[in-house]
Design a protein around this nucleic acid. Structure first.
Lengths: 215, 215
DNA sequence: TAGCCCGTCTTTGCATACACAGAAGCCCAA
DNA sequence: TTGGGCTTCTGTGTATGCAAAGACGGGCTA
C-alpha cells in the first residue's frame, strides 16, 4: 500500500474517532515523523483531508481539525435529507428484491444485537445497508456525494453513541425503509428515510443539548 | 499564487472547455513541462482533479480525462435535482428579499441579452444567481456538494450551447425560481427548480441524441 | 511600562534525485 | 509463427534539499 494512502487512512480514522480533537494543529513535519514517512506523501494525505472538510486551513498557515458545532449538525442533516431521500427513491426503482429482503430479515433480528449491546455488530449491519442502497441506486455521482458526507456523520456517533433506546427505534425505522425499497415503493422509501433522519437529528440535538448543559 | 493552484486552475479549465478531451492521458512529466512547473505541485493538482471526478485512474497507472456518457448526464441531473431543490427551499427561508428582487429584475430583461446573442452575459447572470442561492442557503455543506457538481454541469454546456430558444425558456424558468425565493415560498421555489431542471435535462438529452445521430 | 522594529527561526512550497514497479519490446525456442 | 521469458525503459511514488514567507521573541525607544 502507498505511504500517502496509509497516512490518509490513519489520519482520517484518528479524526473520526476523536483521537485528534477539533482544533488540533497538524504540522507537516510533526505528523510525517509520527507516521514514519516523509513530508511528500503526508502532504498528499492532508490535501485529501482538506477536500473532505475534515481539516481546514488556519489563516494561511497550518491545518487544524475542523470543529462540529450544533449549526453544523443541522446543516449536515439538511444535506443528508436531500441525498438519502433521493438515493432511497432510486434504490427502490432499481433494487434486487432478494438483497433487500435479506436485509429486512436482519433488521428484524437487530433488537437481539442491541439486547446484548453489540453496537459494533449493529453499525456493521447499517454499513451493509448503506452499501446495498449505494449499489441499488445505480448513480455514481449520488453515491460519491454521499460518501463525502458520511465521514462527518461518523464523527457524530460520538454524540449519539450508546443511546440504546434510540438505536432500537432506528432499527425499526431502517426496517421500514428496507421493506419499502424491497417492495419497489419509491415514495414510501423516501418518506421513511425522511422520518428516520428527522428522528435521528432530533435525538442527536437533544443529546448535544444535554452534553453542553452538563459541562 | 501557488504553482499547484495555477496548475489546478489551468488543467481544470482545459478540461471544462474541452481543450483536453475525454480519454486524454495526463502524464506527470508531460503536463509539468507544459505548465512550466515541477512534478510535485502538478501531482497536487492532479489529485484535486481526481477527487473532483474530472480525471480517473487508468488501470493503476496513468490518469485520463473522464468521459460524459448519456447515462452520466441522467445521473448528474438526479443529483442536481436533489441538491438544487434543497438549496432553493433553504434559500427561500433565509433570503434577503432585496437581493432576489434585484435578480428578478435582471432576469426579466434577460431576453434582451439573448436577443443580441450575448450568451456570456447570460451565463454570468446565471452565475450570480447561483452565488446568491448559495449565500442565501446558509448551508456550507450543501454549497460544497453543489460546488463539486457544477464543474460537470459546465462540461455539458458544450452540448446545450447556442440553443437560443432553450435559453429564453430557461430565463423564464429562472425568473419564476427567483420570484418564489424572493416571496419566501419554499415549496414553490423547489417545484420551480424541479421544473427548470426537468426541462433542461430534456433539452440536453434531445440535443445529445441529435448529435450522436448526425455523426 | 508599553509599543514598535528588527533579527531569527520555524514552517511551508517547490524542485530534484532516487528507487521500484509495470509495460513494452526483443530474442530464443518450440 | 507464436509463446514464453528476459531485458530495458518509461513513469510513478517517495525522500530530501533549498528557498521564501510568515511567526515569534528580544531589545530598543518613547
Amino acid at each position: 500500500m502507498r505511504a500517502s494512502e496509509r497516512a490518509y487512512a490513519a489520519l482520517r480514522e484518528d479524526i473520526l474517532e476523536w483521537r485528534l480533537e477539533p482544533g488540533t494543529v497538524l504540522g507537516e513535519v510533526e505528523q510525517s515523523e509520527r507516521l514514519g514517512i516523509s513530508r511528500t506523501p503526508l502532504r498528499e494525505a492532508l490535501a485529501r483531508l482538506l477536500s473532505d472538510g475534515l481539516v481546514a486551513a488556519q489563516g494561511g498557515r497550518g491545518l487544524v481539525v475542523t470543529a462540529v458545532s450544533v449549526s453544523d449538525i443541522a446543516q449536515l442533516f439538511e444535506l443528508r435529507q436531500a441525498l438519502e431521500q433521493q438515493i432511497a427513491r432510486q434504490a427502490a426503482q432499481h433494487r434486487d428484491p432478494a438483497v433487500f429482503e435479506t436485509l429486512a430479515a436482519e433488521f428484524r433480528v437487530a433488537p437481539d444485537l442491541l439486547e446484548r449491546s453489540d453496537h459494533a455488530g449493529y453499525y456493521e449491519l447499517v454499513a451493509r445497508f448503506d452499501a446495498a442502497m449505494d449499489a441499488a441506486s445505480a448513480n455514481t455521482y449520488l453515491v460519491t456525494a454521499l460518501r463525502s458526507l458520511r465521514p462527518h456523520l461518523v464523527r457524530l456517533r460520538r454524540i449519539s453513541r450508546d443511546n440504546n433506546s434510540r438505536l432500537r427505534a432506528a432499527a425499526r425505522e431502517h426496517l421500514l425503509i428496507v421493506e419499502a425499497v424491497a417492495a419497489g415503493d419509491s415514495e414510501l422509501a423516501a418518506s421513511a428515510t425522511h422520518v428516520h433522519l428527522h428522528q435521528s437529528l432530533t435525538s442527536i440535538l437533544a443529546t448535544a443539548q444535554m452534553l453542553s448543559t452538563h459541562r
